[in-house]
Write a protein that binds this DNA or RNA. Structure first.
Lengths: 190, 190
DNA sequence: TCATAGAGGTGACAGCGTCATCTGAAACGC
DNA sequence: GCGTTTCAGATGACGCTGTCACCTCTATGA
């Protein structure tokens, strides 16, 4: 029934899920290898059977989150009932939603766990490719890179402010309003 | 000559400088209370005479960086030889420059050291106020908040991508080009 | 059937943030 | 001028962390 490979894969998944839960519940400082092991029903040394070190585990957590986002973006792109601008708005809204519901995970996705400078970048590569296709449909192939980077960077920064609670009180606006403004500006600039 | 208050202030400054140096040299993980004390010519317990804990020291480091930026923004705003759009471009470029020359400090400025959710926000308050005045001169008082948040968030996100080295190879653009695009879009949207 | 590989448990170590306690010198009341 | 207070800094200690070496046990494969 439970072959060794199966149980190893299940353990790996349990560890990633435990780390994600701890991240959501108590932020990055709550994610200790000991706590992750305990929450996954193991002891402190067990995670090292599946990940080289803590950073490796965190990269796996971020990769899983990027994979989930990629599926959403892919679905949006395939939805023929939406206009290019609506698809773009959908992607940026999905980003905001992650930021709001899982702020610590969101920060991890856009962070750079010391060491490999672009491990998390690679994790988000497929999402970025999907996103680029949506942007290209709106502004054309030639400007897709420039506007894509502008939109992703802007959305990331805006969501970051939203996550830190800076938007509402201080600037009197919301992340959605800013994204709408941004999409409208890009669509008009063509 | 060196009264007690003076030497205490000097020690405090030395500790902040030491922490900033360590941050620049080896990232956040290199900033340990022990190393900060040692670099400032003291022992590990000494920093606790000037800061309640490590987070307090980091907030002081971030506050100092925001204060420096505020002076730059203030000077830009006062420079009557610049157009509103040029002033805006100058501020965003200053942000990019910090991100490039002191990436870890930059991340700290926009991070949220666990605990007080807006300690760093308060640190940047005066910079933000100065910035808001510049934006208001460009898009009018009514839309200043919305466009100000959009611009700050976008610049922060774009610089973050630049810091992580994502811009050049992957999207084939630069932070300056994106900021120029952004400023042009905002100026045109009026 | 038996050797092996690999998941998981356990003891140990150095480094960390932090605190209680001690020391010495500057500041202050008289 | 002298005793007292205050406070910067030094030091020992504690619990927690990431990580490793080593041990145990069981599914796997010849």
């Amino acid at each position: 029934m439970t072959s060794r490979a199966e149980s190893a894969a299940a353990s790996r998944r349990a560890l990633i899920d435990a780390a994600t839960d701890l991240l959501d519940l108590g932020g990055l400082e709550a994610v200790t290898m000991r706590a992750v092991g305990a929450r996954a029903g193991m002891t402190r040394g067990a995670p090292y059977r599946h990940f080289p070190d803590k950073e490796g585990l965190l990269i796996a957590v971020g990769t899983q989150a990027w994979d989930r986002l990629e599926k959403q973006v892919r679905a949006l792109r395939a939805d023929s009932s939406l206009s290019p601008a609506e698809k773009l708005r959908g992607v940026l809204t999905a980003l905001i939603t992650i930021g709001r519901s899982q702020p610590h995970l969101y920060q991890l996705m856009f962070s750079n766990p010391t060491g490999d400078p672009d491990a998390m970048v690679r994790a988000g590569q497929r999402s970025h490719d999907e996103f680029l296709a949506i942007v290209a449909a709106l502004v054309g192939e030639h400007d897709a890179g420039r506007y894509g980077a502008l939109l992703i960077g802007s959305a990331a920064g805006i969501t970051g402010m939203e996550v830190d609670g800076q938007l509402g009180d201080k600037w009197g606006t919301s992340a959605e309003e800013l994204v709408d403004t941004l999409v409208a500006m890009v669509a008009n600039s063509r």
